[in-house]
Design a protein around this nucleic acid. Structure first.
Length: 256
DNA sequence: AATGCTCTCAACCGCACTCAT
DNA sequence: AATGAGTGCGGTTGAGAGCAT
């Protein structure tokens, strides 16, 4: 499972705790921008991209862990209805949550919701013609429950989004164009928040309802928690780095 | 208890954008 | 203006955990 290749080649797969410590140290030292540089100087046999991803999705001290709160769930739905699969953009509205997390959340929960919805809305025949069904078809997870031949070219959670903002960066522009094209007939539709909330309520009434307090489920074991937070300012885009680093083996690492 | 199935999420990949040269 | 390195993003995959039978 862990593919450890020989020295000169790159490591892939799950990160070890030691790698995490090392990465966190170097990020605190050099900032979270120059990933290729960090990958090199850290001695980690990882690509810059891999380092960045690990940091952003897992090691960043501002991250929340555990289940989404109902409020967050609503925000995700609300912003997804506006922006479609613009996960990073949505993530910016949910401090402590990553695009990856939101993406995963959408995929898992919306799939469930889609199945639920399909069951409820049309047990008999076509599921695309009822008003309730159409209420969420635009941005909608029910797409996922469609047969493959009806959804080809689009992943099940590529549910569109009607806002065609000018390209900001990355694949977004491409995605925007794609959505523009693929959902041209749907562009004018936006489904009301009432409908969304109705859906959420439906969801919350059954399988999403927490049976315990899930929101306190903060990962207990992240190695940097005890020390890094004070160095970081979340969501402001600014970081401050302490020079009195918390890693005990600073000098050893640096001389490596 | 063993096995199979489903769900979750960390991590990878490819593509497109930004920026320095 | 062209180009290449670095970076960010969305889509996808697969291992492991959890659950059902």
């Amino acid at each position: 499972m862990i593919h450890v290749e020989e020295d000169e080649t790159l490591r892939k797969g799950p990160w070890t705790e030691h790698e995490d410590v090392q990465l966190a140290f170097y990020v605190n030292m050099f900032g979270d921008r120059r990933w290729d540089f960090i990958a090199k100087v850290s001695g980690l046999k990882r690509t810059g991209k891999s380092c960045r991803l690990r940091w952003v999705n897992y090691l960043h001290p501002g991250l929340k862990r555990g289940r989404m709160t109902p409020h967050e769930e609503r925000l995700v739905l609300e912003y997804h209805s506006k922006w479609g699969n613009r996960w990073s953009r949505i993530a910016r509205k949910l401090p402590g949550r990553t695009d990856n997390e939101i993406k995963n959340y959408w995929r898992t929960h919306m799939r469930k919701k889609a199945q639920e919805h399909k069951r409820v809305s049309s047990p008999s025949s076509s599921f695309s013609n009822s008003s309730s069904s159409s209420s969420i078809c635009t941005n909608d997870p029910t797409v996922e429950s469609m047969p493959m031949n009806e959804t080809k070219e689009r992943s099940f959670y590529d549910t569109g989004g009607i806002e065609m903002v000018p390209a900001s960066r990355g694949k977004n522009s491409n995605t925007s164009m794609k959505h523009n094209k693929d959902t041209s007939e749907e562009q004018e539709k936006i489904y009301s928040m009432d409908e969304i909330w109705k859906d959420i309520d439906l969801l919350e009434n059954d399988d999403l309802k927490p049976s315990f307090d899930p929101y306190s489920d903060v990962s207990p074991s992240r190695i940097w928690d005890y020390s890094v937070n004070s160095f970081w300012m979340m969501d402001g885009g600014q970081q401050e780095f302490g020079t009195d680093m918390f890693f005990p083996a600073t000098s050893e690492l640096l001389t490596g």
